[in-house]
Computed example of a mutant assay.
Amino acid sequence: MASIRVRQARDEDRAALAALHEREWGGPIVVVHDTRYDLRDLPALVAVDETGGFAGALAYRVDADGLEVVSLAAAAPGNGAGTALLAAAQETATAAGADRIWLVTTNDNLGALRFYQRRGLRIVAVDAGAVDRARAVKPTIPEVGADGIPLHDELRLARRLTVADRR
């Protein structure tokens, strides 16, 4: 596994972020929990490898509900970027005074469910039909997702930050 360092995104990261968002989401627009986000408008953390190469990114927002991970993607799976980005998001949440991190994924995204649960997030809600509603806003969302699973629902995962997390 490569040595990964995480920092706030900079202007020079725009092209790499745009390419990652195009690959992962079909562009910078994501629709989640009935909200349309333009990832270009959100703060982002960027993971870089030991050569300074782009390894992944996490777009987020912070409000009274905590730090929401709106988008998390690694340039290549298994390089440690996702783990490093999620840990940095937790630090960002703590610095902002948030007491939890949370996110939404889709019912077909079994790899993400495995990844997040192994890092302490738990499923706290299921919104049946949320992806069907999102398709009305972003028609390019496919009907069938990973592993041939019909894509219909959102799963919300969250992790409360403990006192130990805040040290």
Rank of each mutant, 00 (worst) to 15 (best):
A2W: 04
A2R: 12
S3C: 01
I4G: 07
R5Q: 09
R7I: 08
A9L: 08
D11F: 03
A16V: 13
A16Q: 15
A16H: 15
A19M: 15
L20D: 06
H21C: 11
H21V: 09
H21N: 14
G26H: 11
V30P: 02
V30F: 10
V30R: 11
V30A: 08
V32P: 01
V32N: 09
V32T: 15
H33R: 09
T35N: 02
R36E: 09
R36K: 07
R36Y: 03
R36T: 09
R36F: 03
Y37G: 05
D38W: 12
D38F: 09
L39F: 10
D41E: 14
P43F: 03
L45M: 01
V46I: 14
V46W: 10
A47E: 07
A47P: 05
E50D: 15
G52P: 05
F54G: 05
G56W: 10
G56V: 06
A59G: 00
Y60C: 00
R61T: 13
V62A: 08
A64H: 08
A64P: 00
L67N: 02
E68N: 01
E68T: 03
V69F: 00
V69R: 00
V70S: 11
S71T: 14
L72P: 05
A75Y: 04
A76K: 15
A76Y: 13
A76L: 15
P77M: 14
P77Y: 11
P77E: 14
A81W: 03
A81G: 00
G82N: 02
G82Q: 01
G82F: 02
T83Q: 10
L85E: 04
A87T: 15
A88N: 05
A88L: 08
Q90W: 08
T92Y: 05
A93N: 06
A96R: 07
G97V: 12
D99Y: 07
R100M: 08
I101P: 07
L103Y: 06
V104I: 09
V104T: 04
T106G: 03
G111K: 15
A112D: 07
L113H: 02
F115G: 09
Y116T: 15
Q117R: 15
Q117W: 12
Q117M: 13
R118P: 03
A128S: 13
A128R: 02
A130L: 05
A130F: 01
D132A: 12
R133L: 13
R135D: 04
R135M: 09
A136R: 15
A136V: 10
K138V: 08
P139H: 05
P139R: 02
P139Y: 07
I141K: 03
P142S: 09
P142K: 05
E143M: 06
E143C: 00
A146I: 06
G148A: 04
I149K: 01
L151F: 04
L151P: 03
H152M: 01
L157F: 12
L157I: 11
R159A: 12
R159L: 14
R160N: 10
L161Y: 12
T162K: 11
V163P: 04
R167Y: 06
R167A: 13
